[in-house]
């Protein structure tokens, strides 16, 4: 974990209530896809934990995509380039891509889709066959489709209302795909549960929980696993399929 001041290089709306922010600073602690950062906002006591969407090590830039769901993230949405943010970086375990098989699926739902981009790229770079399934409620909420395509990663879109791609949740896409030998997922808990139930192979699942500190000190975000209590912020947010207790 590192603390640093980051300069906002970019902060743009990419879908209703969804924003992408590029932050420049010391990203040396951001080493694993699926990790998150924790951001101090003026006037708010707790930091805001947000998953890392992508990194550009040469430029010292990390990208986050966040949903403006409360006063804190709404304040973030109105920030402009040139401003600075106090950010804790290198938080959480992230995805262990070494455990992936040859044919890997990455699955993201809504605001859980952004961290799957860096994850998919890392898998691609490690020589795996990667397909992405991204699920949203409606066509206007769809993000990242072109980005995955530009990165050479096949992407299947599902929307709950059928306004784009396959109608239904991400599991609707799984039926038509060859069975993967490993999955990486991030999204709302019902989606994670559905993927867990719909896939026979091993996988890793990134969970969300209200956090106090974000680095393992307060026990605010604990969950029970097969191997005892784990802190989502420190021992997670990624849990192995076989240790999850629903």
């Amino acid at each position: 974990m590192k603390q640093g001041l980051f300069e906002i290089k970019e902060n743009v709306r990419i879908a209703p209530d969804m924003y992408e922010m590029a932050l420049q600073g010391d990203i040396s602690a951001v080493t694993v896809p699926g990790q998150f950062v924790n951001i101090t906002l003026d006037g708010f006591y707790l930091r805001r934990p947000i998953s890392v969407h992508d990194v550009d090590p040469a430029a010292g830039i990390l990208r986050i995509i966040y949903k403006a769901v409360g006063k804190g993230t709404e304040a973030m949405a109105s920030m402009t380039p040139g401003g600075t943010l106090d950010v804790l970086t290198g938080l959480g375990n992230g995805f262990d891509i070494q455990r992936a098989g040859k044919n890997t699926l990455v699955i993201g739902g809504g605001a859980g889709a952004p961290p799957m981009f860096w994850t998919a790229k890392a898998l691609r770079d490690s020589g795996r066959n990667v397909t992405a399934v991204l699920g949203f409620n409606t066509a206007e909420e769809v993000i990242l489709q072109q980005k995955f395509e530009a990165a050479g990663i096949p992407v299947i879109i599902t929307t709950a209302d059928g306004s784009l791609g396959i109608k239904g949740f991400v599991t609707a896409a799984l039926a038509d795909l060859p069975a993967p030998d490993y999955t990486f997922s991030c999204g709302p808990e019902p989606m994670l549960r559905a993927v867990y139930d719909a896939t026979a192979c091993g996988g890793q699942f990134s969970f969300e929980e209200r956090m106090g500190c974000g680095f393992g000190a307060c026990m605010g975000c604990s969950c029970e696993t097969k191997y005892g209590a784990k802190r989502i912020c420190k021992d997670g947010p990624v849990l192995e399929k076989e240790e999850i207790l629903w």
């Binding site: 006591y45 707790l46 605010g220 604990s222 209590a229």
Partner: peptide, 23 residues
């Protein structure tokens, strides 16, 4: 002790509420 169910944390003006439950 595992402690209390989550959510255990709520933000407040200049502070927070916790209900960790002595994990």
């Amino acid at each position: 002790r595992f402690g209390n169910p989550t959510p255990r944390i709520a933000e407040c003006t200049a502070g927070l509420i916790n209900s960790v439950g002595l994990q």
